[in-house]
Design a protein around this nucleic acid. Structure first.
Lengths: 156, 156
DNA sequence: TATTGTTATACTCTATAACTATA
DNA sequence: TATAGTTATAGAGTATAACAATA
């Protein structure tokens, strides 16, 4: 009788999580559009920003996509002057991908946008509710991580 | 000094929300894969289940996609024997899309999967934390809905 | 022989534009 | 003339497989 009467059911809570996921995705997409990026390219840009220059193979592993796809992503970043390909100094098979100044600036814009977005979502929330929300999210994530890890959807 | 010292910052909370969105998406994708559906087709199937038979135009509006795309989605559903096209009794321009028994069964499987998933996420959570999490989610959603509504990303 | 990246091919999700049949 | 749906075309996100150059 845990969820009797007026109480919220797990299903309703999941609906909220799903709606949140959709709305966050929309917001991301629109912010990225402003920066001239698609979600996938933004992800690549972001990894390059975090990890610094590296061969495409490393980027493919970091993004969890095929080397073939990285070719296309890097093509697009290069076309938009966000990154450059350079010969790898030690391994002549490989290429180094490096962000340009514009690429770095774009990544930093993105970071600022994230911070603003976080403030919009949580900035005016009471400290109590915020803490409690974070605890709840952590618990849900703890359940979800192992469950998703065992599924291993390759094309996701 | 709301977020001083060890406390979680809005940015860290956003990171949790983002991770949650990604994990939920992965889980969905894998469940749908089991049912032989892509996310987009599942969405179409779901709307058909909720709204009953209707012309493609109505489905396009419900999904927020172009009529052209609905043609493709319905093609796929028909190919997998989840739906059938029927002549519209009043309007000879239009077609009625109706779920087959298999389509209805698939939608119901999906529904059951959602309920199980909700139990996985929230079933063993203490009532207090659960309530608090739901309140926090509601507050975040209340902030997010108007913000996203004004952006109006068409292709999202 | 194993690895890096590319070309080739294919499927899905989207969009716009032009067109057909019907209202 | 407006609407329902399709064909045509296009770009993006993915994948696998075959292949080149290099290790």
């Amino acid at each position: 009788m845990k969820y009797a009467q007026q109480m919220t059911s797990p299903k309703e809570a999941l609906d909220r999580v799903l709606e949140l996921a959709v709305l966050v995705h929309h917001d991301m997409q629109s912010s990225l559009g402003t920066l001239g990026l698609t979600p996938s390219r933004a992800h690549a840009l972001w990894e390059l920003h975090r990890r610094g220059p590296g061969p495409q193979r490393a980027l493919a592993d970091a993004l969890g996509v095929t080397p073939r796809h990285v070719t296309g992503l890097v093509d697009a970043l290069v076309e938009h002057e966000l990154a450059v390909r350079e010969p790898h100094p030690q391994d002549r098979r490989a290429v180094l991908v490096r962000l340009t100044d514009k690429g770095r600036a774009t990544a930093e814009d993105f970071e600022r946008g994230q911070a603003e977005f976080a403030d919009l979502l949580f900035g005016q929330m009471s400290a109590d509710r915020f803490d409690c929300l974070v605890l709840g999210l952590d618990e849900v994530l703890a359940r979800l991580r192992p469950a998703v890890a065992t599924q291993e959807v390759p094309g996701a």
